[in-house]
């Protein structure tokens, strides 16, 4: 599988990163098999979080067995020093390892949170101390919030090694600033920051619960995913061809093998084919009805 530089981390990540939340939906034996499958396909970057149910614990056994083959990303939603430190120690404990390669601020959403994490008593101070102690390698940030907020964060956090954010044709088709994650990608590239793409396989929101109760959804994802091999491949190719360092696999284990297959076969994507997906998404969501043309 193709690898790309992950910003200043010195790591070359495979173009697919395993989103280990998928393990939460499997029993331990299935989780072990999943990790073996992912490694067999050549993936060298895993991403997990304490908020993903049992995922940390279920990743533990195979992570310890294959520790040297895996670049491990984890994250915390705590914004203050003490909370972040506690969550880091808990993740190390639940994963059963003594080092996390990339520790990320999880799901930054509000300006106030950026104030808090960058403050003297904020989460980033805890991250830096942990880095000094060798508990973590590099510092990253994840967000599906306002792109401008991510840009601000990149400006204000000097030692930021990676950013993780949504990128797919549906998002790319929206021209407004609220969806301008391409600006984030561009700025990260200029600054040499590693980029991880999420939501690459999101098709749209689930139907309202009156129409489709949550318990009847066929996938664990909080959005409705694309789910045929062709669509998965198109979406993977699109995300990878935007220039992301790596594309995170979706949260439902039923989709992972298809994504691994797409990543293994990735060979670039013509710009006219990329535009085709954006144009398709634009029309699905267009305020202008009755268009014969593109």
């Amino acid at each position: 599988m193709e690898t790309r530089d992950l910003g200043p981390t010195g790591h070359e990540s495979t173009i697919a990163t395993f989103g280990a939340i998928a393990l939460n939906w499997l029993e331990q034996e299935g989780a072990n098999q999943m990790v073996e499958l992912v490694l067999d396909r050549g993936v060298n970057h895993f991403d997990v979080a304490p908020t993903y149910g049992d995922a940390e614990r279920k990743l533990g056994p195979k992570l310890r067995q294959h520790r040297e083959e895996i670049y491990l990303g984890c994250k915390t939603q705590e914004r203050d020093y003490d909370g972040a430190r506690r969550k880091l120690e808990r993740s190390l404990d639940r994963l059963g390892v003594d080092h996390i390669d990339l520790y990320q601020v999880h799901g930054l959403e509000y300006e106030e949170e950026l104030e808090e994490i960058t403050g003297d008593d904020g989460a980033l101070a805890a991250f830096r101390d942990a880095k000094e102690e060798g508990l973590i390698g590099d510092i990253g940030l994840t967000s599906h919030g306002n792109p401008q907020l991510i840009l601000d964060a990149m400006d204000r956090i000097d030692d930021l090694a990676t950013v993780m954010f949504p990128l797919n044709p549906v998002v790319a088709a929206k021209d407004d600033d609220d969806h301008d994650y391409e600006a984030v990608l561009e700025r990260a590239d200029e600054a040499g920051i590693g980029t991880l793409g999420i939501k690459a396989f999101a098709k749209g929101s689930w139907p309202p619960t009156e129409e489709l109760p949550e318990a009847d959804r066929p996938y664990a994802n909080w959005y409705e995913p694309v789910d045929t091999p062709d669509e998965i491949r198109e979406r993977f190719d699109f995300a990878a061809s935007q220039g992301l360092s790596t594309v995170v696999s979706p949260g439902d284990p039923k989709l992972v093998a298809m994504v691994l297959d797409a990543a293994t076969r990735y060979d670039g994507m013509a710009e006219s084919a990329q535009r085709s997906l954006v144009e398709e998404a634009r029309h699905d969501d267009s305020p202008v009805p009755e268009q014969l043309h593109h």
């Binding site: 013509a270 710009e271 006219s272 084919a273 535009r275 085709s276 997906l277 144009e279 398709e280 029309h283 699905d284 267009s286 009805p289 009755e290 268009q291 014969l292 593109h294």
Partner: peptide
């Protein structure tokens, strides 16, 4: 000469617009 779309996505709304014709 350059390719703008390959393939061309004929979406449900396009098909509906052509049926409307």
């Amino acid at each position: 000469h350059r390719m703008l779309l390959d393939p061309v996505p004929w979406t449900a709304s396009h098909l509906e617009a052509h049926a409307e014709v």
